[in-house]
Simulated scan of single mutants.
Amino acid sequence: MKAVRVHKYHQQPSIDEVPEPTVKGPFDVVVKIGGAGVCRTDLHIIEEQWADKTGVALPYTIGHENAGWVHDVGSAVSNVAIGDTVILHPTPTCGLCRACRAGDDMHCSNNAFPGIDCDGGMAEYLLTSARACIKLDPGTQPEDVAALADAGITAYHAVRKAAPLLYPGTTCVVNGAGGLGHIGIQSLRALTATNIVVVDRNAEALDLAKQLGADQTVLADGKHVDTVLDITNGDGAEVVLDFVAEQGAQQDAFAMTQRAGSHFVIGYGSNIDIPTIDIISTERNIIGNLVGTYNDLAELMVLAQAGKVTLHTKKYPLDAALDALADLDAGRVRGRAILTP
């Protein structure tokens, strides 16, 4: 089968012919990929940002936003059958550790992360587990929902955590309206009554944000922090969801957060440099977010199949994976790039 493989960091991947994965364990599931999302994390992998954290051996196949059809199953799999349409939670988990038992399976002590620390789904087939599979309506096209498996669940997970803070009359700033941010806007609209202010440096992204439910939009032109402070009567927002968190955006996000407010860090790529006195004197919170739980993805799919959350995508054949990565890196993708093997 064809697969997008990283052979060396700081070099572009190649599209190789590799053996198809096979079922070995009783709970294994092999999925024929119908859609694989292209994420900024894939760029960070190529840049070697994840190497020390994962210890993955090169070469390997990237791609951690995956949906498709069940191709083969292990002897103990009972929740899906061959031919079922599925979206995959990004981390197959054990189901036995304390985190899994508590429903916090993103922190499973025995999980794998296809596309991050083992072979992923930018390929024709992917090996996963029964615990990662969410069965979809047979009429769902995997390429239309694949990015919900990471971009979607990550945005939804952050909104789900922030929702109790966003009672009517509050303001939430969405910093970045790209692949994750455009889903975050819709999730906020579905779960809260907060005033949604979207900040982005791209006017087209702001136009999309308005269509998706943003109450106000602000162009990131160097004066955007002051503009947000003006909108919030000088106070800042109760919650800032930072879907960028690099190239200075992370500092702006903290500056747009009000006293006792919460700065949710979702994007990444740069350090946050804040004097500790500015944290303690204002009691602002900085909260990390890593993907989300199986239940987060299941809830998000309910919203998606009800039409309350939709993905805006640009589709590429698997053979054009390098074009998709280049377009993402250059900011030419509105919404999410999807590979269709």
Rank of each mutant, 00 (worst) to 15 (best):
C39K: 01
H64F: 08
T61F: 04
A146K: 00
F254C: 03
E283N: 14
R259M: 07
L229C: 04
G55Y: 12
E283M: 12
S262C: 06
K2R: 15
P19I: 08
G55H: 14
M1L: 10
A162I: 05
G178M: 02
A249K: 03
I185L: 06
L166V: 10
S14A: 12
L229I: 05
A57K: 15
P138K: 12
D215H: 11
A321V: 02
G34L: 13
V77H: 10
I33H: 11
A326T: 05
A321L: 01
P142I: 07
E143M: 13
P21A: 09
Y167I: 11
V4T: 06
G55R: 14
S281R: 15
V18G: 01
G248T: 10
G269A: 10
F113R: 04
L339H: 08
G331N: 08
Q186P: 05
C172Y: 05
I272T: 05
L191Y: 03
I277T: 13
L126H: 09
D226C: 02
L290E: 11
E204M: 00
V244N: 09
A306M: 11
L43P: 03
T41S: 14
G292L: 05
Q247F: 10
R189T: 04
C97A: 12
K314I: 03
G178D: 02
S187V: 06
C172H: 03
D273H: 10
T154P: 11
W50F: 15
V309F: 06
P13D: 10
T93I: 15
A205P: 01
I185V: 11
G95L: 13
Q49S: 13
V23Q: 13
R131A: 15
